[in-house]
């Protein structure tokens, strides 16, 4: 089974961050996590994913500062996806788990 690691980091006291992982072949939500308030740094482990499967990672919410996001783990692209999100935010990332 495969695992995706989502690291989040925020300097703001006002945060609402939803992280949802969807299997793209059938639009099934396989994981949902809500982080709120002054969460600082957090690591979200999404486990028991299928190998060689395409997933969509939707991230949405709001922050009055900045949320740094990094996606890594058993994904085909060995480089982690890194992004900074501000204000009202909604962003979708695409990954495919490796063999």
């Amino acid at each position: 089974m495969k695992k995706i690691i989502i690291d989040v980091n925020s300097d703001a006291v006002n945060n609402t961050l939803n992280v949802e992982v969807i299997r793209r072949s059938d639009d099934v939500v396989v994981f949902h996590k809500l982080l709120e308030g002054d969460f600082g740094t957090a690591q979200i482990d999404v486990e028991n994913l299928d190998a060689q499967t395409k997933y969509k990672i939707a991230v949405w919410g709001a922050t009055t500062g900045k949320i740094e996001l990094s996606i890594s783990g058993d994904i085909q692209d060995p480089n982690p996806i890194e992004r900074e999100l501000e204000e009202a935010l909604d962003k979708t990332f695409f990954v495919e788990t490796n063999h």
């Binding site: 609402t16 939803n18 939707a58 949405w60 919410g61 709001a62 009202a88 935010l89 909604d90």
Partner: peptide
């Protein structure tokens, strides 16, 4: 209100 607006959008 901010969260509701982002949730509705999403």
């Amino acid at each position: 209100e901010v969260v509701a607006a982002t949730n509705d959008y999403h």
